[in-house]
């Protein structure tokens, strides 16, 4: 990272508490994390360690209680709710574990949704979506409904959807956990080859050790904290175990 280049994500002392009294759960206990532009960072750790809470905070869909979280130098908490919504729509792409494709829409229409939300006309949005679907290897499947696609194909439609509006940050929640090994590898390959760009960062929450070798760094979480961050070589070694 250039010394003048702002980090894609910069979290300092992030805390988040759910509930109160007996039901109080401290999900994040002062998380410090930086993600660089052009980097693919994986967040790993046991269930309930706070991974999902952390990417929700990073993606601006959940308010943290304390600390600072900036996206490309911008503190989302200082934006109004509406501004934050628009910021998310323009700068962030999402990939979900359960794909979350609209069953009644074709692949192209599903992939075009972020552009349509941003007010791009349908025709233009569909053309861009078709281009993205081609990039993730789904040429010729533009008119297929989700039910007509395999799990891997559906996740690749979701990847196209996350990319279509050219966001600066893509957050993925367990993108391969619903897929078999081979399909998971294919999805990760298309995600890495198509999504990675110099000015774009990817944060992936995963349990799936089989995809660790796609990471530039792996941040290990436990009990609401980042306990260890490994660089690529170590991550690859870990994946080969």
């Amino acid at each position: 990272m250039n010394s003048e280049e702002k980090p894609a994500v910069s979290c300092r002392g992030i805390t988040k508490v759910y509930g109160a009294g007996e039901t109080r759960v401290q999900a994040l206990r002062g998380v410090d994390l930086e993600v660089r532009p052009g980097e693919l960072l994986m967040l790993v750790g046991p269930s309930g360690c706070g991974k999902t809470t952390l990417i929700s905070v990073i993606a601006g869909i959940l308010d943290h209680d304390d600390g600072e979280c900036e996206l490309f130098g911008r503190d989302l908490r200082k934006l109004s709710k509406l501004e934050r919504t628009h910021y998310r729509g323009e700068k962030i792409g999402f990939v979900f574990q359960a794909f979350n494709l609209i069953p009644a829409l074709t692949s192209a229409e599903n992939a075009a949704v972020p552009l349509l939300i941003n007010g791009v006309p349908m025709e233009k949005a569909l053309a861009k979506a078709v281009e993205c679907l081609r990039k993730v290897g789904l040429e010729g499947r533009e008119s297929a409904l989700p039910a007509q696609l395999s799990g891997g194909q559906q996740q690749r439609v979701a990847v196209a959807r996350a990319l279509v509006h050219e966001p600066k940050l893509i957050v993925c929640d367990e993108p391969t956990s619903a897929l078999d090994h081979k399909t998971g590898q294919l999805v990760m390959e298309s995600l890495k080859s198509v999504a990675m760009a110099r000015d774009r960062a990817l944060v992936i929450v995963t349990h799936d050790a089989r995809i660790f070798d796609f990471a530039d760094r792996i941040a290990h979480m436990d009990d609401g904290r980042i306990v260890k961050i490994e660089e690529a070589d170590k991550a690859a070694a870990l994946a080969s175990l």
Partner: peptide
């Protein structure tokens, strides 16, 4: 509801 949630996450007001 889930899809409306997805829309909202993706920037739908």
């Amino acid at each position: 509801l889930r899809y409306f949630g997805v829309f909202k996450a993706m920037g739908a007001t």
